[in-house]
Design a protein around this nucleic acid. Structure first.
Length: 496
RNA sequence: GCGGGUGUAGCUCAAUGGUAGAGCGGUAGCCUUCCAAGCUACUUACGAGGGUUCGAUUCCCUUCACCCGCUCCA
């Protein structure tokens, strides 16, 4: 009786097990490692290994191509991570990124100080300081859980990483690592406008690192303290907010499908009126079904002119745009699609992971079948793990093998083919172990194509087979005879 | 930050108050004519720091990391 598990518990156990397998594969194959692992690791920080950094690069390249290079109306920007502290004052991050927390010394519960006071009908006291607000509990504050008045003073957890510019560690030299890439775009709006010869509507895009001192990093790389963002600020004429917002939500959903995330696992979450920030007119989050739940990959917000007007106010510089056609001056409104690169990488890894029963040599030629949890594969099959990345996003596009390692003519020809392909695609050469083992290694790396050089390639079966190779498909395991000449075009077609 | 759990090789797991063993993997060699075959050799670990003890991977404390719940989530 005590051993009986509810369906919910069983399902939870299965998803935990799945995440653990994905984490193990990420380490085994060199996708993601713990940061500073030899020193015990560092909470909230992760490194990308040889395959992982190729994957991430492919995500960023795809985004940059689709959002910037292939459009007439978007230009790029690469700003510094540390910027003038006033930027974060203007953006609201210095004040609103702070959560004052109090702990009950008696029952160890933790509360947001403002919420606790509100519940008691009191008002949290605060004083402005150069580095943000300092909070003080009003008289009469007590723990709402146990009633004790033994509460710690409110401590501010500002989510921005702080540092100092120059040698003196002093309040006047405080600077922050950017908690988002977006603000630099607003701060450089006039510079970009004056050189890029763009007219509203147009966008400025940036990819880069951002830092948030999260209280509680969780779910592998999903919530990290150092992460990478891809943000677009698309500046529009006031009043066209709704139509552009709708446009970008559609564009972004399409993009996720283009990198191989299925529509069935992507869900738009439309913010309700009361959930919106006061300046925003609309916001849609793109959610992905991770093994640990449906979670946000990107937020697409219509932010009005809040950011530009804030910077105009704080800097005293005009952020206005002069419209040649209507001869009007105005502060452009903005639609902001803001995506997390690491979250997308994690989504791709989770989505690509499959356990299958693949045919062994006895039943070669059969199609692989999905593995059934907790069961042994049927005779003639054995389990394999395969990462089914979309070819466009796969870290390695093609692997090249000589059928046998101890035949110099095969090795020489294979290396020749490898060098030919390497000039165009991320390629991998392997000759260790038997051919099946090498195929399986590439399955775990998610390499969509394997090319094998055999004796027919050398012309042993006659001239019509000479200079043809086996092209093996990762997903179907099907093999096809293709001439070396046609190979680059075949692969290029699949990975474009 | 609180509570619970976990920490032995790259992975999965074992044993033990007297300094650790296997399978898989990896590397090298032999072999191998298309899906993890075989043989040989090599490789690698008690998360970190203290304490108790003649002696600690094992017991105790602290710390770090990971997982789960709470909390938090621009």
């Amino acid at each position: 009786m005590a051993d009986k598990k509810s369906p919910e518990e069983a399902a939870e156990k299965a998803t935990n097990a799945l995440m653990e397998k994905i984490v193990a594969l990420c380490k085994r194959r060199g996708f993601i490692f713990q940061s500073s692992e030899i020193y015990g690791g560092l909470n909230g920080f992760w490194d990308y290994g040889p395959l992982g950094c190729e994957l991430k690069r492919n995500i960023k390249d795809a985004w940059w191509r689709d959002v910037v290079q292939r459009r007439d109306d978007v230009v790029g920007l690469e700003a510094t991570i540390i910027m003038h502290p006033s930027i974060w004052k203007a953006s609201g991050h210095v004040d609103s990124f702070t959560d004052p927390m109090v702990d009950c010394k008696t029952c160890k519960k933790r509360f947001r100080a403002d919420q606790l006071c509100e519940e008691l009908g009191l008002k949290l006291e605060s004083v402005e300081t150069p580095t943000g607000k300092q909070f003080k509990l009003p008289a009469g504050a007590k723990c709402t859980a146990c009633g004790s008045d033994q509460l710690t003073e409110p401590r501010s957890f500002n989510l921005m990483f702080k540092t100092f510019i120059g040698p003196v560690e002093d309040v006047s030299n405080v600077a922050y690592l950017r908690p988002e890439t977006a603000q630099a775009i607003f701060a450089q709006f006039q510079n970009v406008l004056s050189c890029a010869r763009q007219k509203v509507p147009f966008g400025i895009a940036q990819i880069g690192k951002a830092f948030r001192n999260e209280i509680n990093p969780r779910n592998f790389t999903f919530r990290s303290r150092e992460f990478e963002q891809m943000e677009l600020e698309f500046f529009i004429k006031p009043g066209t907010d709704a139509q552009w917002h709708e446009y970008w939500v559609k564009e972004r959903m399409k993009w996720y499908e283009s990198i191989g995330l299925p529509a069935s696992k992507l869900k738009p979450y439309v913010y309700k009126k009361e959930e919106l920030a006061h300046y925003a007119s609309a916001c849609v989050d793109v959610y992905f079904d991770f093994p640990f739940g449906s979670q946000e990959l990107e937020g697409i917000a219509a932010r009005g002119n809040f950011d530009l007007s804030q910077h105009q106010k704080h800097s005293g510089k005009s952020m206005e745009y002069f419209d040649d056609e209507t001869k009007e001056k105005y502060l452009p409104h903005v639609v902001e699609p803001s995506a997390g690169v690491d979250r997308i990488a994690l989504a791709l890894l989770c989505n690509a992971y499959y356990e299958e029963w693949a045919p062994t040599s006895e039943s070669a030629g059969s199609a692989p079948i999905p593995a059934e949890h907790g069961k042994q594969p049927p005779a003639g099959f054995e389990s394999r793990v395969v990462m089914r990345f979309a070819p466009r996003i796969a870290p390695v596009k093609v692997a090249v093998f000589p059928l046998l390692k101890n035949k110099p003519a095969l090795v020489e020809k294979a290396k020749e083919v490898f060098h030919l392909l390497r000039s165009q695609f991320v390629s991998f050469y392997d000759e260790a172990g038997n051919i099946g083992r090498r195929y399986r290694r590439q399955d775990e790396a998610g390499t969509p194509f394997c090319v094998t050089i055999d004796f027919d390639t050398l012309g042993e079966k006659g001239p019509e087979m000479k200079d043809t190779v086996t092209l093996r498909d990762r997903d179907t395991l099907k093999q096809e005879r293709v001439s070396i000449k046609e190979l680059p075009a075949r692969i290029a077609e699949a990975v474009k």
